[in-house]
Amino acid sequence: MLLDDLPAIKKLLATARTIAVVGLSPKETRPSNMVARYLIEAGYTVIPVNPGQEEILGLDCYPDLGSIPVPVDIVDIFRRSEDVPPIVAESIAIGAKAIWMQEGVIHAEAARTARAAGVLVVMDRCLKTVHHGLGHERG
Rank of each mutant, 00 (worst) to 15 (best):
L2A: 13
L3H: 10
D4M: 14
D4A: 14
L6M: 14
A8E: 14
A8F: 13
I9A: 11
I9C: 10
I9E: 09
K10L: 14
K10F: 13
K11W: 11
L13P: 03
L13T: 06
A14W: 06
R17F: 12
R17G: 09
V21I: 02
V22R: 01
V22Q: 00
V22P: 01
G23F: 00
S25K: 03
P26S: 00
P26M: 01
K27F: 09
E28W: 01
E28P: 03
T29V: 07
R30P: 03
P31M: 03
S32R: 01
N33F: 05
A36R: 03
R37P: 08
R37C: 09
I40L: 13
I40S: 13
I40Y: 15
E41F: 15
E41Q: 13
A42F: 14
A42K: 08
A42E: 11
G43Y: 14
G43C: 13
G43I: 13
Y44R: 02
Y44M: 05
Y44S: 04
T45P: 15
T45Y: 15
V46Y: 12
V49G: 08
N50F: 09
P51D: 10
G52A: 14
Q53D: 12
E54I: 14
I56Y: 05
L57Y: 00
L57W: 03
D60N: 14
D60H: 15
C61F: 04
D64M: 04
G66N: 08
S67C: 03
I68D: 05
V70G: 10
V70E: 12
P71M: 04
V72K: 04
V72C: 07
D73S: 06
I74R: 05
I77L: 11
F78V: 07
F78K: 05
R79S: 06
R80I: 12
R80T: 11
R80P: 11
R80C: 12
E82Q: 11
D83E: 09
V84K: 01
V84P: 01
V84F: 03
P85E: 02
P85D: 03
V88W: 09
V88Y: 09
E90V: 10
I92M: 08
A93Y: 08
A93N: 12
I94K: 06
I94A: 07
G95L: 05
G95H: 06
G95E: 06
A96C: 06
A96W: 02
K97W: 07
K97N: 04
A98H: 04
I99C: 03
M101S: 03
M101L: 10
Q102E: 04
G104V: 08
V105N: 01
A108Y: 09
A111Q: 04
A114D: 02
R115K: 12
R115P: 06
R115W: 08
A116E: 11
A116T: 10
G118C: 02
G118Y: 05
V119A: 11
L120F: 05
V121R: 01
V121H: 00
V122P: 00
V122S: 04
V122F: 05
M123S: 04
D124M: 07
D124K: 08
T129Q: 13
T129W: 15
T129Y: 15
H131V: 01
H131C: 01
H132W: 11
L134A: 02
G135A: 02
H136Y: 06
H136W: 05
E137G: 13
R138C: 14
R138F: 15
